[in-house]
Design a protein around this nucleic acid. Structure first.
Lengths: 301, 301
DNA sequence: TCTATACCATATAAAAAAGGTATGTATACG
DNA sequence: CGTATACATACCTTTTTTATATGGTATAGA
């Protein structure tokens, strides 16, 4: 059995007349007769009653006709889906994010991507930095988002955006009133930093930039994620340095303040990582959405 | 696209190696390479990444692989179902019955047929005699059951069984005590007959056989079906003549009595009708079940 | 760095399949 | 009783598919 025979048979079934079906198929009548005969021989089943005015389906023929329509329709869908898959409109994208990355760019990007590519199944995984690298190599994820990423041989690191650091203080804290906030004003202040569960991370980076500024930070608390950290600021446990995207999280009593001459204060990257040898069109499409969205953010600021 | 290409591609996808797949398919490697290339060209889609150790599926290739498996499986099922349909194991059978035929042979036959041919969809239609003929001609039904059928040119009438007539009387009625019941004993008795909604029917037949016996029947009541008729007998409205199969219906106060020398009293056929040109295997299989069951009944009596 | 090996790709000739034309056969219809 | 219509068959041509032989490329090991 082959597609041609099914296609031919469906035409004959619909026309109930071999000659007319042949006309419709743009072939002559004898080859069509032969193809139907071959189909019957191969199945060992009479599909048509030959009458003087044409043919009519036997019960077996009727059954096969419905099956054939089904198969032919499915085949059309199959090619369609294959082409869609090639264009990155169909498939699956596994994205790794880190805890506090739920804020800001990532959720909006993912949302936009899902709208643009509704047939791509997007799966989000929360993963630490080293786990993201491992999962990429194991091909468990296609792309990961993180900060302060070290370069790897087989993995491309692409900086999506650079975020300035801002300070989160309780509204009752003296620094909340002070203008022209400088980085060195943090000396001696009780610092709350996150995340504490991925090393090397923001904390190590914060220590380094404090040292560069000429003082040792007084880290009183390490927490796992931004929400907890800012919550502690709200409760008056101390102050915190956070990337600007965290300001999307507004808690009562918490005030975010820019540093004076922010350009001089070191900022923080948000990067994504993916296997350099991953030429998936889906990944490519997703990266385009990310880049476009990041460029928009850049323009606004 | 054709089945061969899908079959070949599925093998390549599973082996991840064209040479090995060719071995499995019992063809040499170059034609397989070419078939895959043609498939790719036709779809305009790269299905495989060629590597040094073999091939691996692209996202499009993976998509097509799953579709291909689906189509191939469906095709196998299609041939299976077509053969089953030819053997009368798959399809639909529309049966027409008349009101009181719910008793006796028909339900048991249908049940047995459904057990033997579970993939045949049996649909029962309640229909009067002329409607059955019409529905047969319109191919709305495949077979009808009825009594006292006139012959038709295009329709085969097959007597399934011949039922003797018995009398249904109330236990308090004088005839209930009388032995050696003769047909002429019915003269003057109030008769309840059915069905009243299909002419010519049993009623006309009853009038005729009474006339033949030398008296005019005293028909006091015509009702639509056996259940109502026998219920009236139970209530003492009169007596009734019924085919023996009706005795399956036992109501309090109703006694069924045979006629003496029953052979002489005319009986009643139960026949089935079907289009003479209907060579459906399903119908054939159903008729076999009916005949076997009728033969069993015959043997018992 | 060279060679052996294991792949996939290409070229060509033979075999198989599909298509076309002409003709045959059966049935309905005027 | 001939004509028209529809499917079947015979025979030849064209296209498609396969196998064999050969070439090219990347990897592994000496």
């Amino acid at each position: 059995m082959n597609f041609r025979q099914l296609r031919y048979f469906a035409a004959v079934a619909e026309e109930e007349n071999i000659g007319r079906a042949a006309l419709r198929l743009h072939i002559s009548q004898p080859p069509l007769t032969r193809q139907i005969q071959q189909l019957e021989d191969e199945l060992g089943v009479k599909l048509l009653h030959r009458t003087s005015k044409g043919v009519e389906l036997t019960q077996a023929g009727d059954t096969l006709y419905h099956e054939a329509r089904n198969i032919l329709a499915l085949t059309a869908v199959a090619t369609e889906r294959t082409v869609k898959a090639e264009q990155g409109h169909l498939g699956r994208l596994d994205i790794a994010i880190f805890g506090s990355a739920i804020l800001g760019l990532i959720p909006k990007t993912v949302l936009e991507f899902r709208n643009a590519y509704p047939d791509v199944n997007v799966v989000l995984h929360t993963m630490s930095k080293p786990d993201q690298i491992k999962a990429l190599r194991r091909r468990q994820i296609d792309i990961g988002f993180n900060r302060l990423l070290a370069p790897h041989e087989d993995i491309t690191t692409e900086v999506i955006l650079y975020e300035e650091l801002v300070i989160a203080v309780n509204e009752n804290h003296p620094l909340a009133k002070k203008k022209d906030l400088k980085f060195t004003d943090l000396a001696g202040e009780p610092l709350i930093l996150f995340p504490s569960n991925a090393r090397p991370g923001f904390i190590d980076y914060a220590i380094r930039i404090c040292n560069d500024a000429g003082f040792s930070p007084n880290i009183t608390q390490e927490v796992g994620d931004a929400v907890t950290g800012v919550a502690l600021v709200a409760s008056g446990f101390g102050i915190s340095i956070v990337p600007r995207s965290t300001t999307a999280l507004s808690l009562p009593g918490v005030i975010y303040r820019d540093f004076e001459q922010n350009k001089d204060v070191a900022g923080l990257d948000l990067s994504c990582i993916y296997r350099t040898d991953n030429h998936s069109q889906i990944l490519h499409n997703f990266l385009q959405v990310v880049r476009r969205y990041a460029a928009e953010l850049e323009k606004k600021s």
